[in-house]
């Protein structure tokens, strides 16, 4: 569904990514892992047009999308939950969710409230006043409002308590099964590899490992670098 081939990208004169290859299939959860500064977020940003792609290609549902504006790309059915969540802080939860459905104009919030019941109690609260975990739930819910075929979640667990992260992560397989593939970046490598079917390991802008998440979880190199085992 999403296919990234030989992608290079960067900021200004600095090249951050070299020849990335990545595929996300239908109903699949794909995890990107790697140390800080490896280029994980940069890759996600390049996919949704937040930074320009220098070479290589990005195709989504068989259509080339690189070089298009952010607005055009998200209209094709990709939702991007950015690093830091980036809710509209002065607007209520309900308004944030409604804005998530901007392109489809379907402002029915039932399906996301069902997924994150906590948000149902907070609908009229200003988003900026919620806890980090609630904000992350709201950000994901906002991304799901347009019923995208792919949701990109950057730094899902950043700054959140493990208990809260578990609560959010256990919702992801259900989301994928109901037709929204997930491409996620997370600090919590163990959790990410446990729910993902495929994973890619990035280091210093290069793809160093990829394969079935279960295989990577058992891979000694991954265990040593990221899981503190061995």
């Amino acid at each position: 569904m999403l296919e990234v081939k030989q992608l290079t990208a960067g900021y200004g004169r600095t090249q951050v990514l070299w020849e990335m290859d990545l595929t996300v299939g239908k109903n699949e959860i794909v995890a990107l892992v790697g140390p800080n500064g490896a280029g994980k977020s940069t890759l996600l940003r390049a996919i949704t047009g937040m930074i320009p792609v220098r070479s290589g290609s990005v195709t989504f549902d068989g259509q080339v999308i690189q070089g298009q504006s952010i607005e055009e790309i998200v209209t094709r059915g990709i939702a991007h939950v950015p690093e830091g969540r980036r809710l509209f802080p002065g607007l209520t939860v309900r308004e944030n969710l409604q804005l998530g459905a901007w392109r489809t104009r379907d402002t029915n919030i039932d399906h996301v409230v069902e997924l994150f019941p906590r948000l149902g109690e907070r609908l009229d609260q200003v988003a900026g006043s919620m806890s980090g975990g609630e904000q992350q739930q709201c950000a994901i819910a906002r991304g799901l409002m347009s019923k995208p075929t792919l949701i990109i979640i950057d730094e899902l667990s950043l700054g959140l308590a493990p208990v809260v992260v578990d609560e959010i992560i256990q919702r992801l397989p259900g989301i994928a099964e109901s037709g929204t593939s997930i491409l996620m970046v997370d600090q919590d490598v163990d959790a990410a590899l446990t729910i993902a079917s495929t994973a890619y390991v990035l280091e210093a802008g290069h793809l160093v490992l990829s394969g079935k998440a279960a295989d990577l979880l058992a891979d000694p190199r991954v265990q040593e670098s990221y899981l503190g085992v061995g």
Partner: peptide, 8 residues
């Protein structure tokens, strides 16, 4: 930036 990610 977030608004553009909504497709606005």
């Amino acid at each position: 930036g977030a608004a553009r990610l909504m497709g606005i």
